[in-house]
C-alpha cells in the first residue's frame, strides 16, 4: 500500500494550478482524494504530480438564487447539510448523505466525483438528471460544460487535461419532483444500479418534461431517454410509471460483474426507475 513516487504541489490560485497541469500532463488534481489515493496505493494510478486544491480560495461556497451554485470543493457533508441545497434540489442533498461512508463524506467533494466519473458513482447520475452543468477553468479560460456533455466513457470526461472544475450549477427546478433510488454494492457501497429521476411538472399534474439518469449499469452515467419519452406530457399515474419503468433499460449497453449480471442489472434499472418515480411523485 505504498504509492509510487510523486511530486506534491499546493498552488494558491487556479491560474497556478492550471499552469502546473499544463506543465505536467500526467499530473492529477487532489480534492477529497478518496478515489485517487486508494488507486495510487494499489499502484493502479501513478501520477507524477499531485496538485492539492485545498489552498485555493472560493471553491467551497454554496449559493442559491433560483439556480444553485456549488463550489467544486464542497464536501458531500457540506452539500448534504446545506439548507439551500435541500430547498432547491433535495435529491442532491439526500444523495450526498448516502455516498460512501462517513469518512468519504467528510473528505469527498462533489467536483471530485464528477471529474473522476466513476461508472458507479451516485452523484454523476444525480447531477445529470438535475440537468446540471459545470464551470471549468483551463489555459483557454473559462467555459461551461453541461452534464449531458461531461461524461464520455468509463472514468473519462470531456475535460481537457489542464482544465479544473470550479463550480457546479443546478438550474432552477422549482416545483420539480425528484428522487434517487440505489441498489448498493455490499462491499464498495457504490451503486450496482442507481436511478435518478427529476420531473418538471406542468398544470394539472402533468409531467412537463422528465430527466432520468442511470449509474452503475453502464460505462458512464447515462440518460434514460426511452423512459423520459414515455413520461413527457403524461399525468402521473401508476400505468405511466410502469410504462416508463418497462422502457427504462431500452438501448442501454449494460455491464455485468461478479456481484450482478447484466440481466439482473437490466431488471434493476426497471425496478429502480419505477421506485424513483413512485417516491418522487408519492
Amino acid at each position: 500500500m505504498f504509492p509510487n513516487r510523486f511530486e506534491y504541489r499546493r498552488p494558491g490560485s487556479l491560474a497556478e494550478a492550471v499552469q502546473i497541469l499544463a506543465e505536467n500532463p500526467d499530473a492529477k488534481l487532489l480534492a477529497g482524494g478518496h478515489s485517487l489515493l486508494p488507486a495510487m496505493k494499489l499502484r493502479l494510478a501513478a501520477p507524477s504530480t499531485l496538485v492539492d486544491l485545498s489552498q485555493i480560495e472560493g471553491l467551497r461556497g454554496i449559493a442559491a438564487n433560483g439556480a444553485l451554485t456549488i463550489g467544486a470543493l464542497a464536501t458531500y457533508n457540506q452539500v448534504h447539510d446545506s439548507a439551500a441545497v435541500r430547498q432547491a434540489a433535495p435529491m442532491l442533498a439526500d444523495t450526498c448523505g448516502i455516498v460512501g461512508d462517513p469518512q468519504v463524506r467528510v473528505r469527498g467533494t462533489l467536483g471530485g466525483s464528477l471529474a473522476h466519473a466513476d461508472p458507479a458513482a451516485d452523484l454523476t447520475a444525480v447531477v445529470l438528471a438535475l440537468g446540471g452543468e459545470v464551470t471549468v477553468v483551463g489555459s483557454g479560460g473559462e467555459r461551461t460544460i453541461a452534464a449531458d456533455d461531461l461524461f464520455v466513457d468509463l472514468l473519462t470526461t470531456s475535460l481537457a487535461p489542464e482544465e479544473i472544475i470550479t463550480e457546479i450549477r443546478i438550474p432552477d427546478l422549482a416545483g420539480a419532483k425528484m428522487a434517487y433510488e440505489k441498489h448498493e454494492h455490499p462491499a464498495s457501497g457504490y451503486a450496482v444500479v442507481g436511478v435518478a429521476a427529476v420531473l418538471a411538472m406542468g398544470d394539472g399534474g402533468t409531467i412537463r418534461s422528465a430527466r432520468l439518469a442511470v449509474t452503475g449499469a453502464t460505462a458512464k452515467a447515462t440518460r434514460l431517454s426511452s423512459a423520459e419519452a414515455v413520461l413527457a406530457g403524461k399525468t402521473v399515474r401508476t400505468e405511466t410509471i410502469a410504462a416508463a419503468a418497462a422502457a427504462a433499460a431500452d438501448g442501454l449497453e449494460i455491464n455485468g460483474d461478479l456481484y450482478a449480471s447484466a440481466d439482473y442489472r437490466r431488471h434493476l434499472v426497471g425496478v429502480l426507475t419505477r421506485r424513483a418515480l413512485e417516491r418522487a411523485t408519492g
Binding site: L42, H185, P186, A187, S188, L258, Y259
Partner: peptide, 8 residues
Amino acid sequence: TGTMNDYA
C-alpha cells in the same frame, strides 16, 4: 475478490 472493494 482481492480488495475490500470486492470482498464484502
